[in-house]
Amino acid sequence: MATRSDTAASPVKGGAAPGRRPDGSPLSKEEKRRAKLSRRWQRDARWSPYTFVAPFFLLFAAFGLFPLIYTGWASLHQVELTAPTDMNWVGLKNYTRIFDDDFFWNAAQNTLTIGLISTVPQLMMAMGIAHILNYKLRASTFYRVAMLAPYATSIAAATLVFVLLYGRDYGMINWALDFAGIDPIGWQDDKWPGQFAVSSIVIWRWTGYNALIYLAAMQAIPQDLYESAALDGASRWKQFLHVTLPSLRPTILFTVVVSTIGASQLFGEPLLFDPNKGASGGAEHQFQTLGLYLYEQGWVNQHLGRASAIAWTMFAILIVIGIINHVISRRLRASS
């Protein structure tokens, strides 16, 4: 390093080293060496950024973008799981087949309702918890770590425990409800209890995580805003409504987007919630989501082409959600 320190031709201004001096006299050997190093420097400064970001884009192209596009191509073919490389062109037949299937609409509806039941209360609770965590508290680190424990628990382990807790005959939840005079609920057998139970697993796993994200955003709100609101006589509730919530708008939007994407992909929880029924999501498909329906078509019924059509339909739905979200956030920004 030390030996080369003299060759550091100003990297920022970076004028290309000229082959000749302005007066036209030839360069000495030492100067040529410098010029060469400087050119190497230039090449480095110009191209190395692309080298640094290239691995991400290459890997994403190979394992993200290409498969996504290829899914669209496969959705126009008949492809069977047993011979995934044999593709026969069928045009839009896969799409008409799934749109004619009642179970597709059932799954779409379930995805929507489970998504709402799991996301809305989750984010509202997370907001409340974050607000409390924002107070000065004893042992605040303990609460934060403890509420992150569900996030560390895998979908598989969490769902298996909840299956037992929600058991109709011997589960703890029905046992507790019995004290309130409520008859045993068939969490796995009935539609709304099943959807509620599946949602509760999602809520359990993610509320603490979202609370931490809200808390981080709350801590970034300047204290003066509260002080001046308080001087104006705003109550604590008013301060929450008029200072906290508006400042959190971008964060709320972010969590809504992430939760929506997560909800649209729900798979492991409904798959394992009734392990005997598996891919059908309950005996009467009462909590079969689109993710599960995709799996059922592709890997149980072995129609990969049809599963591809489902995947692209989900993709289209996500794009629509994205556009709606964009419009809403623009409105919000314009109104504030």
Partner: peptide, 16 residues
Amino acid sequence: TMMIPPQLSIIPLYMM
């Protein structure tokens, strides 16, 4: 790319 769920790419990946 964060907005694209990996689940939508599983079929071609499975073929690969």
